[in-house]
Amino acid sequence: MKLVIAIIQPYKLEEVKEELYKVDVNLITVSEVLGHGRQKGITEVYRGAKETGNLLRKIRLEIAVNDNFLEPTIKAIIKGAKTGETGDGKIFVLDLKECVRIRTEERGSVAIG
């Protein structure tokens, strides 16, 4: 089992979700986060004064998958989120030790899907 954590552009969320649905990955957790990458980002202006270098808004996805779903998941995220410009984001893959479905107390692979 793996835990996939992806940081993507907020406006790419819908496309990434579409791609994930296509490969039957339906269980995702989404949160809004702030982060700093190489990207300078979109400049904001407050009453005429320019502000840059702020933390940028990103979307963080968490997806727990069985091993055979890992590659399709990664490919789907890339397909939905990639523009080729700085700021597209990153995907992290972690080993997942355990997974418990609270309702049934099932554990392991069966609990993921």
Binding site: Y11, I42, E44, V45, Y46
Partner: peptide, 21 residues
């Protein structure tokens, strides 16, 4: 299309209504 996806606040006015933290 990209401006529409990013939102008009940022792309037309370079402002945002809400902060996260």
């Amino acid at each position: 299309e990209k401006d529409e996806l990013v939102g008009l606040d940022l792309t037309q006015h370079r402002e945002r209504a809400y902060t996260i933290i």
